[in-house]
Every structure is written in structure tokens, then in C-alpha cells.
Amino acid sequence: MGTLLLKGLRKEYGTAVAVQQVDIDVGQGELVSLLGPSGCGKTTTLRMVAGFIEPTQGVVVIGGRDVTGAPPYARETGMVFQSYALFPHMSVAGNVGFGLEMRKVGRAERDARIAEALDLVRLRHLADRLPRQLSGGQQQRVALARALVVNPAVLLLDEPLSNLDAKLRAEVRDEIRALQQRLGLTTLMVTHDQEEALTMSDRLVVMEGGRVRQIGTAEDLYENPADTFVADFVGRCNLIPGTVEGGALRSRSGDLLPCDVRGATGDATVFALRPERIALQPGAGGSGVPAKLSNILYLGAQTEYRLELGGTTLTAIRPTPSRADPLHQLKPGDTVSVSWDPVAGRLLPV
């Protein structure tokens, strides 16, 4: 069965450390995403799993077998590259069957497996075309078929949707996820796109500076981030440094903000509050905190409000109000009443 275990994985380039002490356990049929900014070590980690980069330390175990020193073709992995890496002079069928040919699979079996793989991605009718005769989405699906045709124990995806436009990206994203679930493929994916990771993954691994910052489901990371980096990287978040005072947070600018302190004392902390958890009412009345609107950004289905609470700056995101809603009449410079449930935010270490 296809499982993947990375234990103590580390990669050094001279004195520079690209990946340090990565421990990840991917279960059978699970899709786990490595998520993080450019240069965080996620692609280096994926390439160590594939066998294209030799780790400085640590082990890679696939299906219970230590493959750390094995060449790429002996690892039972299939990889979809960011650039697709299709051979321009080969037909679709030739590209898909290349890995089988390198493995000395007989012609009859090779043809049958190519047809089966192309059926999976709905491209059998384009088997004789060259890559340049295909759209970007079709090329991506050919690359996926090439990875699937070798019956991999683990599927590796390196930014598989980054070269597609936004609409096509959403369509292909859903196709890949549905196919991965239907086939029960153990999958490790690299992405820097939050929406892509949140919608496709069973679990996410947030990386920064070569380290793993947190592992969990999308809900875990969004609702209970381990630190300010995760809170800020996974979704939008207001991060307000301050100290606990009584049952509230005293911000550095001196504002007293409601929050659930949960036994915290006066030590320095950061209050993390998601923008969609903030409610607005026109005017300074009500039970909320008065704030001044510094800007309003229309985002279609949602509207973003930039707020000044004394010396504290906040961003609120609300469903775009209808014309009959009093919020529709707001403009920069207006005063509003701002409120949130004290348990909606989290106190995080500095």
C-alpha cells in the first residue's frame, strides 16, 4: 500500500540549510500539501522524495521500504512537474508511455496502459497530437496521465496548476482531487496558493525557512494557528501585539480590546482576529467599539473595510451589503461601531 514517511529530512548546500528536520507521515490515499512562501524548502523536500536530490540527513520511506538511496525510477513515484516537462517531438501517447518504455514494459501492455491512463484524464481522442497542439489544461492532464500510467505508490505534484489561468485552474484542481480520491492515491503536493491547498488537501504542512511550522487540516490551521506566521499565511488575519490586562488585551497603542484571555497573564502576546469575525454598525452607538473607516474596498461578493480604533488598525471583511443595507451608505471617514465575539480570536506567542 502506498504510504509515505519522511523522518529527520535535511538538506544542506555548503553552509546554507535549505530543509531542516522535516518529519511528515502521509497515510494511504491521503493528499498532503506542502504550503509556504518561495524559498521555504517545500520543492526541495518534494525532490528529495522523488529522488532528484539526495538528502544530507534523514530517510524517505515509501510503502514501508526505505528508498533514501534509490534512484528515481526505483521509488514507485509518479511526478507532475510545474512546467509539465512534455517532450515536444513526441505525441501525447508517446509522452504518456515514456516511463513504461524506460521500464521495458512490452508493447501490448504499454499500449493498453497508455489508453487506460488517457481515459482517466479524458484525452484518449488526442493521443496522436503533439504538445504544441494542446491547450494548457490539456498539457497538464497529459503530464498527470504520464505520472499515473506507471501505477505509482505515491503521486508527487509540484505546483501543478501554476501555469493555468484562474478559471481553468479551478476546473483542473477539482478534476485532480476527484481523480486522486477515486483512485485512492497517496499524494504529496507542493503549492504556494492558499486556496489550492485548502480546497484540495486532507492535511497541510506549513513551511517557512526550511522548517515545518504546523501540520493539520485546513480547519485546524485556520482556526487554531500555532503562531503568527501560520495565522498570517493561512488566510487573512489581524495581528495585534499587546499585553493581557484583566479580561482584555491592551494593545501597544493603548487601546483595550475584548478577547478571551483564557488564563493568560500580562506577558507580551499577539491577538489574532480573522477579518470576517468583525461586525460593523453605522455610527458610534451600540455595544461595540467606535472606529473610523479609513478605506472601503469592493471585492464583489465581499467588501473590505479598513478601520482605525484609536491607534490600532484593523481589517474587516463582510458580505457586500445590498443597496437597502445601511452599510451600503458608508464612506471613508465615517464612524462605525465595531464588535466581535471575544472567543473569535486567539492569543499567540510573540
Score class of each variant (00 low, 15 high):
Lys7Glu: 15
Lys7Phe: 02
Lys7Trp: 04
Gly14Asn: 04
Gln20Ala: 15
Val26Glu: 11
Gly27Pro: 00
Ser33Phe: 00
Cys40Arg: 02
Leu46Gln: 11
Glu54Val: 00
Gly64Phe: 05
Pro72Thr: 14
Glu76Gly: 12
Thr77Trp: 05
Gly78Gln: 07
Ala85Asp: 08
Phe87Leu: 13
Ser91Met: 06
Ser91Pro: 01
Ala93Asn: 06
Gly97Arg: 06
Leu100Asp: 13
Glu101Gly: 14
Val105Tyr: 04
Val105His: 12
Asp111Met: 11
Ala112Arg: 15
Ala117Pro: 05
Leu120Gly: 10
Arg122Trp: 07
His125Arg: 12
Ala127Gly: 05
Arg129Leu: 10
Pro131Trp: 02
Gln133Gly: 05
Leu134Glu: 08
Ser135Val: 11
Gln139Leu: 10
Arg141Trp: 05
Val142His: 09
Ala143His: 14
Leu148Met: 11
Val154Met: 09
Asp158Val: 00
Asp158Leu: 00
Leu161Lys: 10
Ala166Gln: 14
Arg182Leu: 06
Gly184Ile: 03
Met189His: 15
Glu196Ile: 04
Ala197Gly: 09
Ala197Tyr: 01
Leu198Phe: 03
Met207Asn: 01
Ile215His: 03
Ile215Ala: 09
Ala218Asn: 01
Pro225Gln: 08
Cys237Ser: 14
Asn238Lys: 09
Leu239Tyr: 00
Gly246Arg: 05
Arg252Ile: 02
Pro258Tyr: 05
Pro258Cys: 04
Val261Tyr: 03
Asp267Gly: 14
Thr269Gln: 11
Val270Phe: 07
Ala272Arg: 07
Leu273Lys: 10
Ile278Lys: 01
Ala279Trp: 01
Ala279Gln: 10
Val289Asp: 02
Asn295Tyr: 10
Tyr298Asn: 11
Pro319Tyr: 03
Thr320Trp: 01
Pro332Thr: 13
Ser339Gln: 11
Pro342Cys: 15
Ala344Ile: 01
Leu347Arg: 14
Leu348Lys: 12
